[in-house]
């Protein structure tokens, strides 16, 4: 277990009711955990709490605890206690995020990957070059782009851009990677490539993925959380959720009776 979410609630700034209520779940080490549920149930809100990206906007309210494993000390530390910018940076280097739409930075392919390394304070040119190459290989992109590393990343296809973003996140060696519907804007072939990549990545990182696509969740994840209207309805092994759900709502959703 690398992350444990305990009695967690979240209210957006200015909202009258919480968007997440009393969530309890965990992210297992080097496994894929998926979050499913109908649109608007709070999947993104939960995922975005795990690296506290919500804090870029003022006034949101957290309750409960989200504990992250400190690999050095072996202790679980509550990330909701973080207040200093340095600690936020630290957290986000440990907990990376990939978004629904690919978000290449307005710079070259090489610089996109090197960026995270540079802001992490790595100055050695050869080390950066080596790690960029390794990250591109990890992102299953090296073969396609090795001869145009200095070209703008904007020229890549959607699927390539998304793999670039994954490679970019992997380059800083995070402990957890959060994916928010990473394939919903892509064609089936790019989707398959990215799914394969995510499965490959779990060797090195623990993964939480929000997905609309139940087949995707059942194909790649070991644990699945089903959410509905801000509640975590059921959290279990993926096979139990899909084959043997305990809750009626879960079953209805899985069998396509709503959502």
């Amino acid at each position: 277990m690398v992350m444990s979410i305990e009695k967690f609630s979240f209210t957006y700034a200015g909202a009258s009711a919480p968007s997440l209520k009393n969530i309890n779940m965990e992210i297992a080490k080097n496994k894929i955990t998926s979050l499913i549920g109908p649109s608007g149930c709070g999947k993104s809100t939960l995922l975005r709490s795990m690296n506290r990206i919500h804090d870029l906007y003022p006034g949101n309210k957290y309750d409960g605890k989200i504990k992250l494993l400190n690999e050095d000390s072996g202790k679980m530390e509550n990330i909701l206690d973080i207040k200093k910018e340095n600690d936020f940076i630290n957290l986000r280097q440990k907990v990376g995020m990939i978004f629904q739409k690919p978000t290449p930075f307005p710079m070259s392919i090489f610089d996109n990957i090197a960026y995270g390394l540079k802001i992490a304070g790595i100055k050695n040119k050869t080390e950066i070059a080596d790690r960029v190459e390794q990250a591109l290989k990890d992102g299953a992109l090296y073969k396609e782009v090795h001869d145009r590393l200095n070209k703008s990343a904007m020229g890549l296809s959607g699927g390539q851009q998304q793999r670039l973003c994954i490679a970019r996140a992997v380059a800083v060696k995070p402990e957890i990677l959060l994916f928010d519907e990473p394939t919903s804007a892509l064609d089936p072939i790019s989707t398959a490539a990215i799914e394969e990549l995510i499965v490959e990545l779990k060797k090195d990182v623990s993964i939480a993925i929000v997905t609309h696509n139940m087949q995707q969740a059942s194909r790649i994840s070991v644990y699945t959380a089903f959410m509905y209207l801000g509640d975590l309805v059921e959290f279990d092994k993926t096979e139990n959720i899909f084959l043997n759900p305990k809750e009626k709502q879960t079953e209805d959703y899985i069998t396509g009776r709503f959502g």
């Binding site: 940076i89 978004f99 960026y115």
Partner: peptide
Amino acid sequence: TPDVLKESAYAMGATKFEVIKDIIFPYSK
């Protein structure tokens, strides 16, 4: 500059200054 672009830089551990300098300025060049 799209929020999600800034968010992806913050999500890599960039500071506000770095986001302004490396993302927002190039994007709005």
